[in-house]
Design a protein around this nucleic acid. Structure first.
Lengths: 192, 192
DNA sequence: CTATTTCTGAAACAATTGTTTCAGAATAAT
DNA sequence: ATTATTCTGAAACAATTGTTTCAGAAATAG
């Protein structure tokens, strides 16, 4: 018998996520956040909680979006290798066109080192990313699209960790050609 | 005709570097820094400058140390491939045994995105790292230690960006075996 | 409509932030 | 030893930090 929460929590989390993504955890102030979320800090503390809790929710949201993407791609009607190659090309485009790099990677280095909950969320995300690659690689092997003389688990681990360095490279050199060339090498290595 | 600076600036930079390395730029407060440096903030502002300037000096110091290491390794009497394999094994040990990951990588994602000077220092560092790998790969090819059907520049770029992902993986999963297996695959791929 | 509960906005909170001030200690040159 | 200069330590600075308070607006249920 009382009033309901007025603001759209999902939208507010989305907006907060964008701020954290761009500025990092320590670089984003509560004012930055509540301004973007268009709510008062009292509303924030009444519903979501403090800054740490908000960040956890934002990272969770970020990884949820990635999860949806992987699930959709796994349902694709294309062959496993084609699906994988498509994914790599889109990943490259995101690296090259994205303004603020990858929030998961940035958070891994800035926050996961000190915050257990964030580390667990990102570890689970990384595990899903691994599983996505692993499934595609294993299926591609079974269908004879790629060589099967290497352990798919090892390949998935190896490739999964590769993207991170491309993000770093692009931050430092802003060289799209360099990223594309590495991606082509990556694909060639996989295919043959 | 006056007093000299009392504290050891090189030592103070080293101590400040350790704080930034562990806590990041935004996570480290001026008190954290001056405590570790064992100097008063007035001395800091009198000699080195403000927080940004101090950070720049610390990142510069960090990359100087790496530069020395690469130069020493290039003078090694071992074969290029052996030198490279040694380097990879030591890099893995550093990843696995280091408490605070890699300051260059952390700074690339936290600071280089917004600070031009830091970006330039880290880009130059990355370029030296690339050159180190490139020299070794090219020499190994010329001496017939590894296949020469791939562009050494491409391989150097590709491998240079690989380490970063290993750091991330180790932060998230703390799994030494995973890192070692990726390194072995890396070496195998290079050799054959 | 009334009563009750809950949310919101603005203001205030103490603590911490990066930075500056300045008196006095310390030293080098005369 | 005196002088001139510069460094150091402690304190203070205003601004910003994350967080709390609370009066009043809003809305649900009776």
């Amino acid at each position: 018998m009382a009033r309901n929460v007025e603001f759209d929590e999902a939208l507010a989390i989305q907006k907060a996520m964008e701020v954290f993504w761009k500025k990092g955890y320590n670089g984003a102030s509560l004012r930055d956040l509540t301004d973007a979320m268009k709510i008062n800090s009292s509303s924030l503390y009444n519903t979501i909680g403090d800054k740490q809790e908000l960040f956890v929710r934002c990272v969770q949201h970020y990884t949820d979006l990635r999860k949806l993407d992987w699930e959709k791609r796994l349902k694709s009607k294309k062959s496993p290798l084609a699906t994988l190659v498509d994914y790599i090309h889109e990943a490259v485009n995101i690296i090259i066109n994205g303004e603020d790099s990858c929030m998961a990677v940035k958070s891994a280095f800035e926050v996961a080192t000190n915050d257990l909950r964030v580390k667990q969320i990102l570890a689970a995300d990384d595990q899903r990313s691994y599983q996505f690659l692993h499934d595609l690689i294993k299926n591609a092997m079974q269908q004879g699209e790629i060589r099967d003389d290497e352990d798919p688990a090892l390949l998935a681990d190896y490739f999964n960790s590769t993207w991170t360095g491309w993000y770093e490279s692009y931050i430092l050199h802003k060289d799209p050609v360099k990223i594309r060339r590495m991606a082509e090498y990556f694909i060639k290595q996989l295919s043959k």
